[in-house]
Simulated assay, not measured.
Amino acid sequence: MYQNPNPSSTPDPTSNPNPNPNPSGSGEGDQSRRHRKKLAQVHDLARRLAASDAAGRVEAAREVRRLARSSAKARSAFAVAAVVEPLVAMLPSHDPDARESALLALLNLAVRNERNKDTVIKSGALPHLVELLRSETSSLRELATAAALTLSASPSNQLTIATSGAVPYLVKILISGSIQGKVDAVTTLYNLSTCRDSSSLTLPVDAAEPLLTLLKDCKKYSKFAEKATSLLEILSETEEGRNSISDLDGGILTLVETVEDGSLLSTECAVGVLLSLCCSSPQKYKELILKEGAIPGLLLLTVEGTEEAQKRARKLLDLLRDQPSRRASEDLRIAAYDIAARVDGPRKAASTAKRLLHDMIKRNMELTMARMEHRAAPYTPKTLVT
């Protein structure tokens, strides 16, 4: 039998020398054991992900996904090169199960963890994600879209994703994907548009029709409407984009409805699109905008919108009034009364509406006089040097 040569210096591990252990010490011991257990789990999964057995790698990836989905601590623990890099290496696999399991594992690691989002990108996942966005398998395309959405939520990743070649494929998802795929694509594109160098995002004109269709069908005050109108405003910066927006049946009407019923942000973006149309070609767009009854919503926006929305609405009203019509005048009176009733109540509505119209007419006259004075300013030649 083994005898301890120095029992005084090496205690028996089965004995309990302290019958009343310190609770804090016990807690530290439990914490240490949990830490060692977590490290062992990470090492085991890393070993299985690096193994040559394809089925074992798939099973390990699924285990990473399961643990990461259920625990924020697991998401942090597994975000190490020994786990992330083998998962990234599985993305271009010819085995659909390997691609899907790796993609889901990476997606769950990145959810609600900014550091992990950056780690996934730095580990080389983005080129593979772009390839998966163009996959012939719709489920893989939409999983890749969900992954792009998650990764694009990190500001440090937005420029990299915007310039990776992913945008055209996200627009294809926007055109032909499932409802969830379209929502994910819109949100991803919106995230990319908010990066510091937003000029790096160029939207294909093909995005106009699905964006307007989705805007037409959604609640105009929703967060989704804010994202859709923001992207439409980017499209309206080019002639091709403006043509795509105005050529769609009901496109201008959808924007007018958003001005009337949208949130502060979606109304600001919607009136920005209408203003861009009207500024680019007044003769082409004035009557189209007036025809859809834009005046009441614009007048309301001059009172209730953001500072930028009010400025845009006033400018657009000035452009529309340069070519007054009987319908526009009637719309102005109706809209002024409607706003007055909301602001001051029915009893004072008539007098308030009159004041609103008076202020608008006065502003219009001031602008007209300023333009006339500018055109009539005499030419003053430079003093001749003799």
Rank of each mutant, 00 (worst) to 15 (best):
Ala81Pro: 02
Asn116Ser: 14
Ala98Glu: 11
Leu174Val: 12
Glu114Ile: 12
Thr194His: 04
Thr163Trp: 00
Ile175Gly: 04
Val80Glu: 15
Glu100Tyr: 14
Leu140Ala: 05
Asn157His: 04
Ala98Gly: 10
Thr160Arg: 10
Ser152Phe: 02
Ala79His: 00
Asn191Leu: 00
Val171Asp: 02
Ala144Met: 13
Lys117Cys: 14
Thr145Gln: 07
Leu151Phe: 11
Ser139Ala: 11
Leu91Cys: 01
Ala89Tyr: 05
Glu142Cys: 07
Ala81His: 12
Leu143Asp: 12
Ser123Pro: 08
Leu126Ala: 07
Ala79Ile: 04
Ser123Ile: 10
Ala166His: 05
Ser178His: 07
Val120Glu: 11
Gly124Thr: 08
Arg99Gly: 00
Ala185Tyr: 01
Arg112Gln: 15
Thr163Ile: 11
Ser152Thr: 07
Ser138Leu: 14
Ala144His: 02
Leu174Glu: 12
Tyr169Glu: 14
Asn108Met: 08
His94Arg: 15
Ser154Arg: 00
Ser193Gln: 07
Gly124Cys: 04
Asn116Ala: 05
Asn157Pro: 01
Arg141Gly: 05
Glu85Gly: 01
Pro155Arg: 09
Ala144Asn: 05
Ser164Pro: 00
Leu189Cys: 09
Thr188His: 06
Ala148His: 06
Pro168Asp: 10
Leu104Phe: 13
Val183Ala: 13
Asn116Cys: 13
Asp118Val: 10
Arg115Thr: 14
Ser176Thr: 13
Ser176Phe: 04
Asn157Gly: 00
Ala89Ile: 10
Thr119Arg: 08
Ser152Val: 02
Leu174Phe: 10
Arg115Lys: 15
Thr150Arg: 03
Val171Cys: 05
Pro86Phe: 08
Gln180Tyr: 07
Ser139Leu: 13
Ser93Trp: 08
Leu149Val: 07
Leu149Thr: 04
Leu159Val: 15
Arg134Leu: 09
Gly177Trp: 03
Leu132Asp: 09
Leu174Asp: 05
Thr160Gly: 03
Ala110Val: 00
Arg99His: 07
Ala89Val: 11
Leu189Met: 09
Leu103Trp: 01
Met90Asn: 06
Arg99Lys: 14
Pro168Glu: 11
Ser193Phe: 06
Glu131Thr: 11
Glu100Cys: 06
Leu133Gln: 02
Lys117Tyr: 04
Thr163Met: 11
Ala146Gln: 15
Asp97Cys: 01
Ala79Val: 04
Leu174His: 07
Val80Asp: 12
Ser138Gln: 06
Ala166Phe: 12
Ala89Glu: 12
Ser176Gly: 14
Ile179Thr: 13
Leu192Phe: 01
Val84Ser: 01
Asn157Glu: 01
Met90Leu: 14
Ser135Gly: 08
